[in-house]
Design a protein around this nucleic acid. Structure first.
Lengths: 192, 192
DNA sequence: CCTACCGATCGGTAGG
DNA sequence: CCTACCGATCGGTAGG
């Protein structure tokens, strides 16, 4: 729609910088340089603080995952197809959203107390709902009999490498990645 | 064997601290406090610099993985059993070695240029050998036909959650974790 | 192992 | 958006 605001530009550059260097090693002076500002102090016309940038990144992406799983719960019926759609959701966010790395990474741990506990609550909510889908599949016999929490962690962790690997030029490989990850994880999960 | 040297104590505490806060956010003053020293300057009687601690942690663990895969290549014959042993190796290192987190994590990226390129060369070597085992399995038909590099990344990434989850009190769950991870990943990989 | 200290860099503010 | 600046904290050294 409308052009990106300077604030959005700053926040996307911050996400890239946090991902490159880690939140603590990323300096506001380097961030300024990356968005074409000579002085770090100029950044404060667009964002309140370094942590505000981190918060926006973390919560914007948390919302994407929550929205995604909400649609999947209501639009899709069978656990097998629901898990398939969740894997698609992770791949899609990792490859479409340059800011998502920061959430996938451990940078969220640098949030201060209040936003940190809110972020962890959102993550917990997402994980519980994902786990419940796995659990339904196990109970109905379409998934192997395993601890749903262990299966959840293994799948979520397995999906993390994509955003490290993905660069815009790799779109041609993306369809193959999707197919092989799906094959490996879904046949790992399914009982037949 | 012999008691831990103070240097070893410092390095293990550094590994824990780097894992808790990230390398950049970890201060030498806090590290001093954790090993019972009042002054950060006292640390420099045991280690040369903050980065020396990081180097020791990264290279010691890289060596464990290289040694592990070397044994597996020579002692075990079939790709299926080799991959099974490699998964065991990762679980064992993640749960036995408190310093290993720093390598699993992204903290190695804070190494300076020379040690960083050496570390990446070791990691590359390990990954190539792991991939070759997967490739043999695919060629001989015991594994599904998939891109061996994608399968490698997915498996390595899937194994990373264990060390975040593992705490000494959780030994009772460890056998179940091992079983379920093995079930999910090996049946994801195998063609029959 | 501590005391004393240093230059560098950090996130951020005041004011225009 | 820049100039000028600040207090805090950093990793590390000298010397005993």
């Amino acid at each position: 729609m409308s052009a990106k605001t300077k604030k959005q530009i700053v926040i996307e550059a911050a996400a890239k910088l946090f991902s490159d260097k880690g939140y603590s090693a990323a300096s506001m002076r380097e961030l300024a340089g990356r968005v074409g500002l000579e002085q770090a102090s100029s950044l404060y016309n667009h964002i309140k603080s370094k942590e505000e940038a981190l918060q926006e990144i973390c919560f914007e992406n948390a919302r994407k995952f929550i929205d995604g799983i909400t649609s999947i719960e209501s639009d899709i019926e069978h656990p097998t197809e629901q898990v398939r759609a969740l894997i698609e959701l992770h791949i899609q966010i990792a490859t479409n959203d340059i800011t998502s790395v920061t959430v996938f990474n451990d940078e969220w741990r640098h949030l201060s107390e209040r936003p940190l506990s809110e972020f962890l609550a959102l993550r917990k909510d997402y994980e519980e709902r994902f786990k419940e889908i796995i659990n339904k599949g196990i109970k109905s016999g379409v998934f192997k009999d395993m601890n749903p929490s262990f299966a959840l962690h293994t799948i979520l962790s397995a999906l993390k490498w994509i955003h490290y690997w993905y660069k815009p030029g790799r779109d041609s490989d993306l369809e193959n990645v999707r197919k092989d990850i799906m094959l490996l994880l879904m046949s790992g999960l399914r009982s037949h």
